[in-house]
């Protein structure tokens, strides 16, 4: 039994080059997935490697969050499907992009960040023992107590003052 399951999984993770699957976006922005011979369903996209290889291995999940298809390479899809998937991917990758850091202070077991994001000014909090993560190529990722993700894409692009504020969290 176990062996059969593993085989099934192995078959599924190889995306079909013959366009057996198709994707499109509905007017309301939902991604709709159709596999030949099956009913069209609404799916969500999970990036398997959001930071280490965002354009490959995209898991398409149904409403129960179970994988219905794994796209290992965008080029395996037809043009329209790729276009629809790319648009959805851009949404799925939404994080708060930090463009300035006004202040980082400690306040009763919390580290409070006061930043400017592309979304607007925002305060967020991290536990004191939770540290930002350097992604390489000069990016810094901070996850707050609610699970929201804040990305400083290019540390060097920050103002000198902002760089001083985050200096304590860098490895250099």
């Amino acid at each position: 039994m176990l062996g059969q399951d593993a085989n099934k999984r192995r078959v599924r993770i190889v995306s079909s080059p013959e366009n057996k699957v198709s994707l499109r976006r509905s007017e309301s922005g939902l991604l709709l997935f159709k596999k030949s011979g099956e009913e069209e369903i609404s799916v969500s996209v999970q990036l398997c490697f959001p930071w280490s290889g965002a354009d490959r291995f995209l898991s398409l999940k149904n409403s129960d969050l179970k994988e219905v298809h794994l796209v290992s390479n965008l080029m395996d899809l037809d043009h329209d499907s790729r276009d629809a998937l790319l648009k959805t991917m851009l949404e799925e990758q939404f994080v708060f992009e930090v463009i300035d850091v006004y202040d980082v202070r400690e306040e009763f077991e919390l580290r409070v960040w006061n930043v400017k994001t592309t979304f607007g000014d925002r305060d967020f909090q991290t536990p004191l023992n939770s540290w930002p993560r350097e992604l390489g190529s000069g990016s810094l990722l901070v996850k707050d107590v609610n699970g929201d993700v804040y990305l400083i894409r290019d540390l060097k692009a920050l103002s000198k003052k902002a760089q001083e504020k985050v200096w304590a969290f860098l490895d250099e």
Binding site: S26, E27, S28, L30, L32, E40, I41, S42, S44, L47, P50, L65, E91, E92, Q93, F94, V95, F96, G147, D148, V149, Y150
Partner: peptide, 19 residues
């Protein structure tokens, strides 16, 4: 549907095209 830093809530209507 949870994303990296946001969640999408869809209230379904029975018509996949028009929630």
């Amino acid at each position: 549907i949870p994303g990296l830093s946001y969640t999408r809530l869809v209230l379904l209507s029975g018509d996949i095209e028009a929630p």
